Simulated assay, not measured.
Amino acid sequence: MKSKPHAVVTGGAGFVGSHLVDSLLDDGFQVTSLDNFGSGRPTNLAHIESERFASIEHDVREPFPDLGDVDYVFHFASRASPKDFESHAVEIALTNSEGTHNALRYARDNDARAILASTSEIYGDPEVHPQHEEYNGNVNVRGPRAPYDESKRFSEALAVAFQQQYDVDIRTVRIFNTYGPRMRPDDGRVIPNFLSQALRGEGLTVYGDGTQTRSFCYVSDLIRGIRAFADAPPEVAAGDVINLGSTDEIKIRTLAKTILDVLDADSDIVHQNLPEDDPQVRQPDITRAKQLLGWEPTVSLEAGLERTIPHFADELDTTVDSSQ
Rank of each mutant, 00 (worst) to 15 (best):
K2T: 04
T10F: 04
T10Y: 06
G14D: 00
V21M: 05
L25A: 10
L25Q: 06
Q30D: 09
T32A: 15
G40D: 11
G40Q: 11
R41K: 15
P42T: 06
E51C: 01
F53M: 14
A54I: 09
E57Q: 15
D59Y: 03
E62L: 11
E62P: 00
D69M: 05
H75T: 09
H75Q: 11
F76M: 14
S78L: 02
D84G: 06
I92V: 07
A93F: 09
T95R: 01
G99S: 00
T100W: 00
D109P: 02
A114K: 03
A117D: 01
P126R: 03
E134D: 14
E134K: 13
G143P: 01
P144Y: 11
E150C: 15
S151G: 00
F154D: 00
S155F: 02
L158N: 08
A161C: 09
Q163M: 01
Q163G: 07
D169S: 07
D169I: 05
T172W: 08
V173Y: 09
F176I: 06
Y179L: 11
P181I: 07
M183F: 00
D186R: 02
A198C: 13
L199A: 04
R200W: 10
R200I: 03
S215T: 10
L222V: 04
I223M: 01
A232L: 06
P233D: 09
G239V: 12
I242M: 11
L244V: 05
E249K: 10
K251P: 04
T258H: 01
V262H: 03
V262I: 08
L263N: 11
D268K: 08
D268R: 09
D268A: 13
I269M: 05
P279G: 15
Q280W: 03
V281Q: 15
Q283D: 08
P284A: 10
L292G: 00
V299E: 14
G304V: 13
T308E: 03
P310A: 07
F312W: 02
F312Y: 10
E315G: 01
E315V: 06
D321T: 12
